[in-house]
Design a protein around this nucleic acid. Sequence first.
DNA 1: CCGAGGTTGTTCATTCCCTGAACATGCATG
DNA 2: CATGCATGTTCAGGGAATGAACAACCTCGG
Lengths: 111, 111
Amino acid sequence: MNSIDEATRLQIMRLLADNPELTQRELAEALGISLGSAHYCLRALIRTGLVKADNFRHSSNRRRYAYFLTPTGLAEKVRATRAFLERKQAEHEALQQEIARLRQELGEERS
Amino acid sequence: MNSIDEATRLQIMRLLADNPELTQRELAEALGISLGSAHYCLRALIRTGLVKADNFRHSSNRRRYAYFLTPTGLAEKVRATRAFLERKQAEHEALQQEIARLRQELGEERS
DNA sequence: CCGAGGTTGTTCATTCCCTGAACATGCATG
DNA sequence: CATGCATGTTCAGGGAATGAACAACCTCGG
């Protein structure tokens, strides 16, 4: 994940909003990407001030960081969600047209 | 395009079915992929007998090949179109759910 | 005929991005 | 203290995509 993918960024923010104690490995698995990519993307979020990594060594378990969205991060999450929704709606419409075209091409009724 | 992408293969076959005189460069541009990828994918189609390259040096223009779908290619195109349609329908439904979830998350009415 | 110019197919070094194994670090437990 | 373990961090390696460069062929004007 180099040219930080917008969708991945957003998914990470959404996951962390609900569960800040997720591990990088858990994030990676949840998103279906590699550990390296998750790390890189998370690093970018921290660098740009959208996520803050709080370490809690006093905690009883061995996890070292909890990744909280900053206020800026929360706002960005809303903004990105809106943009993402718009893209998804466009995709949805395009798909509808494509499906209609394919159906016509096959000369079939709707299943 | 190494592990020959199913979708790309199908798109090429669909384009050629309507216009066998398309250039590799034109195919690439139409699909939004590189010349090298289009070449590679077309080569695979020819190798597997789905497309036949007819050269017509006697033609008045300078293009060298017309890429026709073979009978096998035509059948494969229908089969692949069906599979493609099914995938697209699944995508469509998944998108619908995702859009609903995003809308709810944003607490917005439908636009 | 010939050479210049143009169009196309073909190759392949380069780039980009992802992957996950290996390593570093800190905590808990005995 | 030492061992084990969960986690964060790094980075060499590989696969796929790119497009510049090359090869082959055609046309056309001279």
